[in-house]
Design a binder for these strands. Structure first.
Lengths: 223, 223
DNA sequence: CTTGACACAGAACAGGCGTTCGGTTATCAT
DNA sequence: ATGATAACCGAACGCCTGTTCTGTGTCAAG
């Protein structure tokens, strides 16, 4: 028989970690000790328990004693994590006002999953929503056609925050950094190559939300 | 006593769903029927079972019969999901070559969590890595200072793919759309306002990887 | 009033499942 | 050789847990 001298983790440990991960991916709950044994060619539950204890000592696993399937993978092994499901409300484009989920009648055909750990500040509110940018009108905000922007509903903003605004007078939706100034507002593009839009006090701006995150998937591109 | 006429889900159902979600967030495994009962003020396991069956009929829950804690939330209720943990290898900036995780000696001080469902194509390979952009040198790629780019190691690319390249002759790292042409290569910026870089056949380009995704967190901005 | 669906309680049963303990084998340092 | 240690096995014990069955009170329709 194979004998290893108790240092670090061996092939058997790896196999068990891998099995727990794949099992949990499939069933969404951890396996039992006996299930681990079956799939890792260990005929005795006590041996599985033996390995599990070692993995716990190594800090790769945590166990809730006495609780069925009470184990969880730690660190890089853990395939599961908290995530936010953000409803994808539709598209945002220059010519049309964006649709903010005003209370109930929202039907997210699709949704976007974001890892909790990636969320800035503590915008962990459940009222976030996402829009897909259509067209090149947001280039000056460094946002491409097809990008997904995650927004948090808001009516006002603090200086330096990027907001989605509906410019009533200009009949335009845009994403800009917001600055309140003495004679009105300054809407600053993210791209320094573009000039800011100055809004006089008599004009109205309609802040729809704060931009929390921008995601761009690089699928492919037309030639 | 309260009596509801069997249509849809009521307050009790909501409470149970909420408890399962929060329990799973905390323990990383589902609760037992008795645990649900305790926290939802249901004194009999049969009643919990009763509600669980209804939730399953409503399609909000799935159950593995006979299996301890064998339940999972479906759809928007599910707080857990498959995610990829991508190692954050460091920074990418114009003046320096990027460090690609060449096999083993990689020490991801930090990592980035991406929902599996957000991954383009089937780049579900585990060899992805992330870099944080430093400086404004990638503006022409529509990528800001501070953005995080997810890369897939590659030595060559197909037309239309965005790649990270090290331009040996120019001593520069850049992100561009890649096009092979008759007399060399054309590296096209994402921002149409910028001109492409033409690479002659005698110059060498060193493709480091393909850009799979770009993520921008909008924390705040300096005034 | 009767009937029946519905919401719920409680207890008992049976299998699931973690734990424990006595034993066995193989390797290695002394 | 020999004792120590690591890596197993098998079975038994007992709590954990899902399931099932009987029973009760409420409310609305007939």
């Amino acid at each position: 028989m194979m004998v290893r001298k108790s240092k670090g983790i061996g092939e058997r440990h790896q196999k068990i970690l891998g099995f727990i991960a794949s099992y949990q991916r499939e069933h969404k709950h951890p396996p039992s000790i006996r299930e681990i044994g079956e799939h890792c060619d260990i005929s005795s539950t006590s041996v599985v328990n033996y390995y599990l204890d070692q993995l716990e000592k190594e800090g790769l696993l945590e166990r809730d004693r006495k609780i069925s399937r009470g184990m969880r993978l730690i660190g890089d092994n853990n395939p599961l994590g908290d995530m936010l499901r953000v409803p994808l409300m539709g598209v945002i484009q220059a010519g049309e006002p964006i649709l903010v989920p005003s209370e109930s009648p929202f039907t997210p055909e699709d949704s976007v999953e974001i890892a909790m750990s990636m969320m800035p500040s503590r915008e962990k509110g459940k009222d976030l929503f996402a829009l897909q940018v259509q067209g090149d009108s947001m280039i000056d905000a460094m946002i491409n056609d097809g990008d997904i922007v995650i927004l948090k509903p808001a009516q006002d903003a603090r200086n330096g925050e990027m907001v989605a605004v509906w410019l009533t007078e200009r009949n335009e939706t845009t994403l800009k950094y917001y600055y309140k100034e003495k004679d009105g507002y300054r809407l600053q593009p993210a791209n320094p190559a573009f000039k800011p839009i100055m809004i006089k006090k008599n004009e109205t701006i309609d802040i729809k939300g704060k931009v929390v995150m921008v995601i761009r998937k690089m699928e492919r591109m037309a030639a």
